[in-house]
């Protein structure tokens, strides 16, 4: 039982199916605290579904998820979530500060409105992502990278211990990517656990210290040096991996 104490996230026998087709099959995954982990796999490998299943957003056909040995519902306050940027309508009538303050809604609970303290926390998070000059900017007028920074700031406001991020680098420019990764590394230095759905195989070894290779089944999971091997990649991507690596 002692070993259990050192697991930030523990997934056992997780299977998720959408209308008979399994999207995730019998996944076991242990994430130790304080790692920066990339979930890597081809399109349709179930990366987003895995994150959503950990968050309880999709109902698994079988299996179990524990956050520090307890079910997610009791651990919500220590988990921060960054959904895919494309999952919301950015033409929604609101501004940057308002979106970031949504990260406080969980702590606020029902009915209570955000106050000055929440505004301060949101401002602080916006400074962290370099968006402090955009507080009143309409969200429809943000670039892709700025949208991503706003979503990150919203998660930072949650002041979580574990962060789950769905493709935070998707469609952002190189500068923003560098800014985001140094922020994630800073989170890890502060003892947070950060799980990131990632697409770019080229940067995995530079950015992350752990990796989970996923293609409906869990192919491999562990520290980069042992896990991010050519054989594992080949198994995850089939024959296409050679092409990807040669690029």
């Amino acid at each position: 039982m002692q070993a259990l104490d050192s697991k930030a996230i523990e997934v056992t026998d997780l299977t998720v199916a959408y209308q008979e087709t399994p999207v995730l099959w019998d996944i076991d995954l242990d994430v130790p605290p304080g790692v920066l982990l990339a979930i890597v796999g081809p399109n349709g490998a179930g990366k987003t579904t895995l994150i959503k299943a950990i968050l309880g957003l999709v109902r698994p056909a079988a299996g179990n998820v524990l956050i520090y040995n307890k079910p997610y519902v009791t651990q919500r306050r220590i988990v921060g979530y960054v959904p895919q940027r494309g999952s919301v309508d950015w033409d929604f009538p609101t501004n940057v500060l308002d979106v970031v303050m949504m990260g406080r809604y969980g702590a606020l609970g029902w009915i209570k409105r955000p106050g000055n303290r929440d505004r301060e926390l949101a401002m602080h998070a916006l400074e962290k992502v370099g968006m402090e000059n955009y507080t009143t900017r309409q969200i429809s007028q943000l670039s892709g990278g700025q949208q991503q920074r706003v979503f990150l700031a919203r998660a930072l406001v949650q002041d979580a211990t574990i962060y789950l991020m769905d493709e935070p680098f998707q469609g952002v420019d190189a500068t923003t990517e560098r800014a985001i990764i140094s922020l994630l590394q800073e989170l890890r230095e502060n003892g947070k656990t950060v799980v990131v759905v990632h697409h770019d195989l080229q940067t995995v070894t530079d950015y992350f210290d752990w990796v989970t290779l996923l293609n409906i089944r869990r192919i491999a999971s562990g520290p980069i040096e042992d896990t991010f091997t050519t054989e594992n990649l080949r198994e995850t991507y089939g024959g296409r991996v050679a092409f990807i690596k040669n690029r």
Partner: peptide, 17 residues
């Protein structure tokens, strides 16, 4: 606040309970 969050980002609303 709850309805605004529901409309803007349902997944996030569910994730925070």
């Amino acid at each position: 606040k709850e309805l605004k969050l529901l409309i803007f980002d349902e997944g996030f609303a569910a994730s925070i309970g």
